[in-house]
Design a protein around this nucleic acid. Structure first.
Lengths: 157, 157
DNA sequence: TTGTGTGGTTGCAATATTAAACCGTATGCC
DNA sequence: GGCATACGGTTTAATATTGCAACCACACAA
């Protein structure tokens, strides 16, 4: 099927999807952001085949989303933890979560809610703000060419 | 390859990915939110095979992300526009965009920036706020079991 | 020695993607 | 009207990729 790579695309959405837009990567990242660190934890949680987990972990490390660290329990094994680049994906996970909370047909099947750790109260919806503090919807935004945009290999949106 | 369906998963992230987490759907949605409406527009913009575009459009319609409307130019064809559920994906696109803007290794290849339509100034970063207005990072949040969570078919994170 | 945690390797089945041919409906032009 | 061309899909066949299962191997622990 030769998935066409989006790596050279000039659209930032496509570029992000090229990095972790496959079926499992975001779920692995979600698990990592939940504190899972060990191969076995990921495998048990996600139920995916071990070989696939192996390759996914490897490419996520290659791409700077995860890094391996010596196991915290002193064994010779390694653990996988998010890099800053990986932690930066957190808002995307939140956005996905909130979309489901708002639009899913069976919201009663959602098991968890995200709460402020201090107060234990649900977080607010992600908001997109303008420089002067107004809340912006999709219709209130446009795309402008980036000031000094270099020519990308493939120019889309 | 029999992608294991995540539809019954209790994690809202997984549920969202089950709806539009494949390789093309989010890009189609991005195009739609950019104002593209016609089959040919999507195909030309994305460069994917036409049959795939056909099936993707159909499942996005089935899932309530897009709807078909009679063509605006009076021809007998149809156009594809976002439903409210589809428009709700906008924050996810913004989150993806901002992640790339912040972490991509070649940010100079990004062609566009998102600006406030009124003022033409770049938008601010998506912020996650607590009820009392503090900005929350990943470490400042936890997941709590949903109050009256019904048992989902598969219970993960 | 036995068991467990981490993977790698191999083989097979299922699916996704693509390119290309094809078709019915319009549209433009003479 | 007649012809050529474009649009909107559908179908088909070839190919590439993913997923699963099972087995292998090595490191460490008991």
């Amino acid at each position: 099927m030769k998935r066409t790579s989006l790596a050279g695309d000039s659209c930032p959405v496509a570029r992000a999807l090229d990095v972790f837009g496959d079926w499992w990567s975001l779920l692995i990242i979600r698990d990592a952001s939940l504190g899972r660190r060990r191969f076995g934890e990921f495998q048990a949680s996600l139920g995916l085949a071990k070989n696939i987990l192996t390759t996914r972990l490897r490419t996520l490390v290659e791409r700077g989303i995860l890094k391996t660290v010596p196991a915290s329990d002193g064994s010779a094994y390694q653990e996988y933890v998010l890099t800053p680049k990986g932690h930066g994906i957190f808002p995307i996970l939140v956005a996905l979560r909130q979309w489901t909370e708002e639009f899913d047909d069976h919201p009663d099947e959602i098991a968890t809610i995200m709460v402020d750790r201090d107060k234990g109260k649900p977080v607010k919806k992600l908001a997109l703000l303008s420089q002067d503090g107004r809340v912006l919807g999709a219709a209130d935004t446009t795309l402008k060419p980036r000031p000094a945009a270099k020519r990308a290999r493939r120019v889309l949106a």
